[in-house]
């Protein structure tokens, strides 16, 4: 059994605003093991990116971790002083952002951006770093890496830039990668390549991956397990096969039914009525109940249970019942 790399316990992120205290991440817990890829899926605003930022310690003020714990390889990292946390970023946790066009500094050569990252974390000389930079670019599949090392970001295409970003995230050999919508800004034809690259590199190195996405197709293709988030809470977590084929939470079911890939055989895609509530205006009870086809009085009154029965729902979908219906 592989070791647990990242472990989040009852994580709560709060944003105090003028009118109310918002909770973009509310009591979320999950683990990721070495070499495992956990997909975190949900609509925009569901708190999936916020959770990723909380783990790497890059929450924008006034957002902050209110309670809960983040453990990396068994050590608590959510309460570290800034300088210690800085040394973990890049070294133990790598991050890949959504838009490769804006994640690279336009005024610095990519070789310089690679070497500065390695020199910040590894005890190597400048020329060693330069050699490693070429190797890192080769590894992510950039042709003529030795020459391209002197290029500026604008001289690369979007897909190539995302490869550079991945090389940057991996260059100090972190044990965890947080990939925040790594393919969303890319052309469809390039998306699969980037996902495959990420998957291959992490499998080879045994890196744990938190893959944040809203794309069920990416989940199905790349992940081992998937966590579904809704309005800051975890709705359901499980292996990709279980969650995709036998969703227990009505929200997951709705999400699956509205995804072309997973709803083969259906004539039309279904949609979930309504939209996710704003954090400042969460309904009472289960946050999903106004949109839930199965909502009952209990759902309107009481907050949803915490992942009992495999889903944070008072009336999780019973698979057998579904078959008989």
């Amino acid at each position: 059994m592989a070791e647990t790399v990242l472990s989040i316990h009852d994580l709560v992120v709060e944003i105090p605003t003028r009118r109310a205290v918002l909770r973009p991440v509310d009591n979320v817990s999950y683990d990721i093991k070495a070499g495992e890829i956990l997909g975190v899926v949900g609509e925009s605003g569901a708190g999936k990116s916020m959770a990723g930022n909380a783990v790497i310690g890059l929450l924008n003020r006034p957002a902050h971790i209110k309670s809960g714990q983040v453990l990396l390889n068994g050590t608590r990292i959510d309460n570290l002083p800034d300088e210690k946390m800085r040394k973990i970023r890049g070294k133990d946790i790598g991050m890949v952002f959504q838009d490769p066009l804006t994640s690279l500094n336009p005024l610095l050569r990519i070789g310089d951006q690679l070497t500065e990252t390695m020199l910040a974390h590894l005890d190597i000389t400048k020329s060693e770093a330069e050699d490693r930079a070429v190797a890192a670019l080769e590894e992510v599949g950039i042709p003529a890496a030795a020459e391209r090392i002197n290029s500026y970001p604008h001289e690369f295409s979007g897909g190539m830039r995302q490869r550079v970003v991945i090389a940057l995230a991996l260059c100090a050999e972190p044990s965890l990668i947080i990939a925040d919508e790594p393919t969303t800004a890319l052309d469809v034809s390039v998306q699969a390549q980037i996902i495959a690259l990420l998957k291959r590199l992490c499998r080879q190195r045994g890196t744990a991956v938190m893959l944040i996405t809203h794309d069920m197709g990416v989940i199905a293709e790349a992940c081992d397990r998937v966590a579904v988030m809704y309005a800051g809470r975890l709705a359901e977590i499980g292996t990709v096969r279980d969650v995709l084929t036998e969703p227990k939470h009505p929200y997951t079911e709705g999400l699956m039914a509205s995804t072309p890939l997973a709803s083969k055989g259906q004539k039309r895609l279904r949609q979930i009525p309504g939209s996710m509530p704003r954090l400042g205006a969460l309904p009472t009870g289960c946050a999903f109940h106004p949109r839930c086809p199965k909502a009952q009085d209990a759902c309107r009154m009481d907050p949803a249970p915490t992942l009992e029965n495999g889903a944070a729902c008072w009336f999780p979908i019973d698979t057998d019942q579904k078959v008989s219906a």
């Binding site: 973990i88 890049g90 790598g94 991050m95 500065e116």
Partner: peptide
């Protein structure tokens, strides 16, 4: 973003 990314890479 590139400043966030630079921070995420653990630069001083």
């Amino acid at each position: 973003d590139y400043i966030r990314f630079a921070r995420a890479r653990g630069l001083r």
